[in-house]
Amino acid sequence: MRTQLRDFCGYRAGDKGDTSDVALFAYDDAGYELILREVTAERVKEHFGSLVRGEVVRYEAANVRALNFVLRGALGGGGPRSLRSDNLGKSLGGALVRMEIDVLDRSVTPARRPRPDVSWADTIIAARVG
């Protein structure tokens, strides 16, 4: 079975110079084991293609069921120098969870994330837009 990381992972990206840090958060032990096995530095490097020119290093934080990926040469030269509209790479977390992985063992069912319900936002907007 193939599935996207977005279905069971949280994410956040930040910047330092021309380096992007992208963290990936699993929601239970099964999910953590799955990303530990499937989301290698090599796969992440391949996934980002031309967005990341340099190496990718993976770090583990088992205490919070998370992986942190350090992407070198990922920000078009660094925030104040980059021509990209997303010069700080804030969207790279979302780009990472677009990755598809194989769930080999069907007995492993990582907790799945629900999709957003923003009906409260629709209500607010509708009351203000004719």
Binding site: G10, Y59, A61, N68
Partner: peptide, 11 residues
Amino acid sequence: RHQLLYEVHDP
């Protein structure tokens, strides 16, 4: 935990 790993490189 989202903030714990924010921009930390090697946690």
